[in-house]
């Protein structure tokens, strides 16, 4: 039983195993054809889930009640603004990046101002701000689909031996954020706050400052994702972020991060992101409709969180 036990001890392994099984099931249907392409597609699209997943993971790790529901809107805003500013010019890419970061900062500060000043629970704060942010994106972008600069488009789509460069970069990012979580004062503070808010206060941790930084981090990563995704998909669109709300939470939960807070899991984000994409494409391959795809995604997340259970102690 010991090797089985060791697997259960590492929740993120499940997600990779599950992803592998789903990939297998899809290949079975196509009789072995296109396995490699499927893997490449999975890596490509999962990359974007991982970027927002990192931000959402840090927020959720802060403890119960902390969720960022403004991620899709922030993605859309950053994508629209950046594309418009860059205006298909390679020379403007750096400016575009700066603008993206500015968007992320603005959204993060706005969200946290709502949480701190108006004492709104984070869920409601980010929900209502998402509407404001989305409107800003619509008003600014006017729905025009501006093409990304060719260099950006290339960067987000180029592959090496079937593996997208972007996936490698984001893996490195995830690795770096893992180090941040476990080996920096900021990361340790997040983990402490998620385990026990009161103990963190008494241990001298500046709780409000850490929460602020985390919401800004989440907004920054969402902006970055919008920037890159616009480059990847040939321009920003208003429905760009639609599936990212559930996806960002799903990859965090399925990847083994506890919704009770205090323990973040970065490798799991990749496994869960791959799993999520592969489930959707498997359902596509089996020619199941969009409705079933939504249904399946929702059921999976409910199953995972039911199995994981909630807080151990009654608050």
């Amino acid at each position: 039983m010991s090797w089985l036990q060791r697997i259960f001890e590492k929740p993120w392994l499940w997600s990779f195993i599950a992803a592998f099984l789903v990939w297998l099931a899809t290949i079975v249907f196509t009789r072995g054809q296109g396995g490699g392409e499927l893997l490449t597609a999975a890596l490509t699209f999962a990359t974007f889930f991982v970027i927002v997943g990192i931000g959402q993971m840090f927020v959720i790790t802060l403890g119960p009640g902390n969720v960022d529901l403004s991620i899709p809107a922030t993605m859309t805003l950053a994508g629209s603004v950046a594309m418009k500013v860059m205006d298909t010019q390679d020379s403007m890419i750096l400016i575009g990046l700066v603008v993206t970061i500015a968007c992320g900062l603005a959204v993060g500060i706005f969200n946290y101002a709502l949480i701190l000043v108006l004492r709104i629970p984070p869920i409601i704060a980010t929900l209502s701000s998402s509407f404001v942010i989305l409107s800003t994106a619509i008003a600014y972008g006017r729905g025009l689909r501006i093409k990304p600069p060719p260099l950006l488009a290339e960067f987000t789509t180029v592959q090496v031996a079937g593996i997208p460069i972007l996936a490698i970069v984001v893996t490195a990012l995830a690795g770096a954020m893992g180090v941040v979580l476990h080996r920096t004062i900021y990361g340790r503070s997040v983990l402490a706050i998620g385990q026990s808010l009161r103990a963190a206060r008494f241990a001298g941790i500046p709780v409000e400052r850490i929460r602020f930084l985390t919401y800004v981090l989440s907004a920054l990563l969402a902006s970055l994702c919008g920037f890159l995704f616009s480059g990847f998909s040939g321009g920003s669109s208003l429905s760009m972020g639609e599936q990212y709300l559930l996806a960002s939470i799903a990859v965090v939960v399925i990847g083994g991060t506890s919704v009770a807070g205090g323990s973040g899991n970065l490798p799991g984000l990749w496994g869960a992101a791959l799993f999520l994409f592969l489930v959707q494409s498997m359902l596509n391959t089996y020619q199941l409709s969009a409705g079933l795809r939504y249904l399946a995604t929702g059921l999976i997340i409910i199953t995972v969180i039911t199995a994981a259970g909630g807080q151990k102690t009654q608050r």
């Binding site: 409705g291 929702g298 997340i301 039911t306």
Partner: peptide
């Protein structure tokens, strides 16, 4: 199971959406 209703209902929103699309594509 002492679950956070936010995450559960967020998941359910996709279940209902999926069922709605199945019923009326």
């Amino acid at each position: 199971r002492n679950l956070p209703s936010i995450v559960v209902t967020l998941g359910m929103s996709f279940v209902w959406l999926g069922l709605a699309v199945l019923v009326l594509p």
